[in-house]
Design a binder for these strands. Structure first.
Lengths: 344, 344
DNA sequence: TTTAGCACTCTCAATGCTTAAGTGCTAATA
DNA sequence: TATTAGCACTTAAGCATTGAGAGTGCTAAA
């Protein structure tokens, strides 16, 4: 079992390419017809058998054409340089995203609309996520008295997130109290991540018994609630788009897909991990650690402004995905969103 | 063509009931077997033919059992009094909703979790919607300076909604300016609905040229943005639940369903309309004005606290729905949510 | 008015048959 | 030695046929 010859690499890529374009297993004759390697079907057959032995291809059943394995797709994606594949014109993308300009102050709506763009462009599921509030850097906190025992905490972060929480307290506060507390919190905590702040609060709280400053002890109690955010918002759209694909022609596949996207929790974790790196990340089928995604591929890119991750955008689709196109779309979407958010 | 005899009504209901329990068209023999009317299949056949003529039943094809039409379901639902049908124990519901107690200050998360409850309980799609900010009554507005030219407007409404918006202005403001403007706005607008306020602002703006008070003219410009909310949040979940139903066994139906739930816009409008009435509302198949919903049924109930609508919860499922159970679930869910929100 | 009986209709699952696509292997060829 | 032509073999998929089963409508009898 020797390594891949240059020629065989090309043939492997051609097979993958062909399968991506036409949803049928590709046979030896199809390869000779669609690509001109100057080889006869019989030779291609031999090579295909070799590629199968190496784990790049499989046969759905004896005597049908070959289909790429996840390893095959991986090889193809890794050797994708500048495919001649047809992409949506950059202008089209530009126009689509220009329409979202007005939303740049409302991250959630912006991201949710972005997923619609992603899915109409790619015909796969569009996904987008705002940064987890827990990982963001506090710029400013304001406390507003809403009613007896009720306080609104308004958090504003470096990433441009504006989050609010209603807190119900045992004791009552005047707005003046709250201003002083907020002032204290800002001086102490501004510039730290919400997570770090939470940690510090827990430490402070344990010291609290011995703490004679009422201000601080009260501030701590408020914070404990204010800095606890239950979720990061994940937006998904384009289900009806995906259901048109031949890859999701049977009920079982659809069930799997729907389960995958209902477990937002898991996808959030995945995206969190993927958004640590830079640029477009691609996870193909079984490479995925999540069971629900083992038959799907994920193409995502973080939107980064310097070191700050201000969002993640991407696509989920079948492993038989037009990767070249998907990468192009995700890459440029990330660029547009980043630019838009940077201009705020 | 005479009106329905009492006996025929009972038989119609029995047929609908049977079809709801078992997903196969019901034949004359099945009726005599499952319900004891003391009549032979032949008689039932005659009656069924009559019921078909009256538009309550149809046959998928000559020589199969009958299936209720939307009119048939409507008749059944209207004559549902206290069905003996088996409902989830009220305790189960109670337990499920008690788990959401901690979310009562965060309406969006509360509603989103509620849809999950609704769908696991009913096996249909769970839906929930918070009131449109536009229709809510302003209790209080606060303006916070975020940075140069950037203001956060925090709105708090009688319904307990807390909304914020980031506004970018041409000119800069000090926090003192903003406080004065907010004070003015509160004295002028508190107690009015956001929609009314918008109207008034437009009127004020046209007078503005002649208005020499800088305070007011500035306030108006801020408001114009602050009181424009793009959407009302609709939560939907339970797709994978629904895909298990025999009613959605074929691809076409699933596509229709997925298109229906991606048009959130339309559903929001529908729910808005339905939430004006009180108690559980039921819309069956073609009774629905939306094309996407013409093959589905909707069971919803507003959550009302006095005159204030603080949310809508409900279920979307096939017309072949266990209405009795659905009504029970929706009714009690609405009660729990209302109670929970009233206790805030 | 109800019922039994019967011919008729339609779906559905199973069967067998044919076709088309594609393979692997062997032997001939450059 | 690598490539190719040829051929037997495998499998899925489409198609018509068949029979069973469920259900109907109608007629005539109770």
């Amino acid at each position: 079992m020797q390594a891949l010859s240059e020629r065989n690499k090309k043939i492997l890529c051609a097979i993958v390419q062909s399968y991506i374009n036409y949803p049928d297993p590709v046979g030896s004759r199809a390869v000779t017809k669609r690509y001109s390697f100057g080889l006869s079907p019989a030779t291609i057959r031999n090579i295909m058998a070799d590629l199968e032995d190496l784990g790049f291809l499989t046969q759905p059943h004896t005597s049908s054409g070959r289909v790429p394995t996840d390893l095959g797709y991986r090889f193809y994606v890794d050797s994708l340089v500048a495919e001649e594949s047809y992409h949506p014109n950059i202008e089209v993308l530009h126009d689509l995203y220009r329409k979202l300009e007005t939303l740049k102050n409302d991250i959630d709506t912006l991201l949710s609309e972005t997923t619609k763009n992603l899915s109409t462009l790619s015909h796969y599921l569009g996904i987008a996520m705002s940064p987890r509030p827990n990982m963001t850097t506090l710029r400013r906190i304001n406390l507003l008295k809403l009613g007896t025992h009720k306080i609104a905490a308004v958090l504003f972060t470096d990433e441009g997130l504006l989050k609010n929480k209603i807190i119900t307290m045992d004791s009552d506060f005047t707005q003046r109290d709250l201003n002083r507390i907020a002032g204290y919190l800002n001086s102490e905590f501004a510039g730290q991540t919400v997570d770090d702040i939470r940690l510090r609060i827990i430490r402070e709280m344990s010291k609290e018994k011995t703490n004679c400053y009422r201000l601080i002890s009260r501030a701590m109690r408020i914070c404990q609630e204010a800095f606890t955010f239950p979720y990061s918002s994940l937006f998904v759209s384009g289900l009806s788009e995906v259901l048109e694909l031949p890859d999701f022609a049977d009920l079982k596949k659809i069930r799997e897909l729907s389960r995958a996207i209902e477990e937002k929790h898991n996808i959030i974790k995945l995206l969190d991990r993927l958004s640590e790196s830079e640029g477009v990340q691609i996870v193909i089928g079984s490479e995925n650690s999540l069971d629900e995604l083992k038959k799907l591929s994920v193409v995502v890119s973080p939107c980064k402004e310097g070191d700050l991750t201000i969002g993640v955008v991407g696509i989920i689709g079948p492993t038989r995905m037009n990767y070249s196109r998907a990468i192009y779309i995700v890459e440029n979407t990330a660029k547009f969103i980043t630019k838009m958010l940077a201009e705020r």
